[in-house]
Nucleic acid binder design. Structure first.
Ligand SMILES: [Mn+2]
Ligand SMILES: [Mn+2]
Ligand SMILES: [Zn+2]
Ligand SMILES: [Zn+2]
Lengths: 150, 150
DNA sequence: ATTGTAATTGAGACTCATTATCAATTAAAC
DNA sequence: GTTTAATTGATAATGAGTCTCAATTACAAT
């Protein structure tokens, strides 16, 4: 006898509070996003859902992604020229990214020092910070080697 | 007797090196971007240029913005749902941003401590960082007061 | 100055991510 | 079950940004 996963509870409560419904489409989309590990974009998610045999239109994928953001289960990572990138935030502590310009890979990192420093800086400016995004672009180990070989 | 502004030299040299031409359209766009102070997007720039009576098509604005980025006179600040935001980087030292979710205003700030910490973090990960973007979202002083009043 | 040539321009077509429309379907409260 | 408002999905629409290509223009060599 298996428990209903916590994410489903979170999402269905969130929906109920707003007088919205927990449909099979939303359920399928929730599952796929929660089972995913890395970063993803709506189109990829949509294709994966279709492959998995579940039924949900592109429109519903977009609509549900918005809802999942609003209720905090996923988060926007960044906007690129090819669209918006998201990641699961449920059970995935806050972190920032190093992005390789060579191969596109992403390193996730976290630094308490960095977080505290940002709080200091906000205080200095009288700014009430709530969220932030730090993206460091450059070259990962592999791509550094490749560059040297050339 | 006035000197040719340095930015013009930079841009025309950059173009010459690549066998490209310093046309009046590019000149007009360069001037507008260099005289601007805050952040801007291509469409706004285009409209301002038209108002100023200069002649340059939207296509040329987009094309020239790319060139100005490549040669380092301007920089992409961020991508939003309404398009890409740029700022002059020539004569404008590196800084990061606090962005008010209430009114959209941006505070520019710089911290040596923050820059050094990022270098440390890159070292720790074996990552060769070259650029970064830090955006702190929250509420500016004014918008904090407004919230309290409600 | 004239000419030759390759770069540039701009109007409009096009792309592609995302959103809006709306008739048909369905969750869920009674 | 009936009722009713929320949801869905096919498709149209939007909008930022890019591409096309014929006409124009910068520029350098004569
Ligand atoms: Mn991540
Ligand atoms: Mn700035
Ligand atoms: Zn890499
Ligand atoms: Zn504000």
């Amino acid at each position: 006898m298996r428990e209903k996963p916590v994410q489903k509870q979170v999402f269905s409560r969130f929906l109920k509070e707003r007088g919205q419904r927990f449909t099979k489409e939303r359920s399928a989309i929730l599952e796929k996003t929660m089972s995913r590990n890395g970063h993803f974009d709506p189109e990829t998610l949509y294709i994966e859902i279709r492959k998995a045999g579940a039924k949900a239109s592109r429109a519903s994928v977009y609509r549900t992604i918005s809802l999942l953001c609003e209720c905090g289960l996923i988060e926007q990572v960044r906007k690129t020229e090819h669209g918006t990138v998201y990641e699961r935030s449920f059970g995935h502590e806050h972190h920032d990214h190093m992005l390789c310009i060579g191969c596109g890979s992403a390193i996730e990192f976290y630094s308490d020092k960095l977080e505290r420093l940002q709080e200091d800086l906000c205080r200095q400016q009288g700014f009430q910070g709530t969220t932030h995004t730090l993206e460091i672009r450059g070259y990962c180990r592999k791509c550094q080697k490749k560059k040297k070989q050339t």
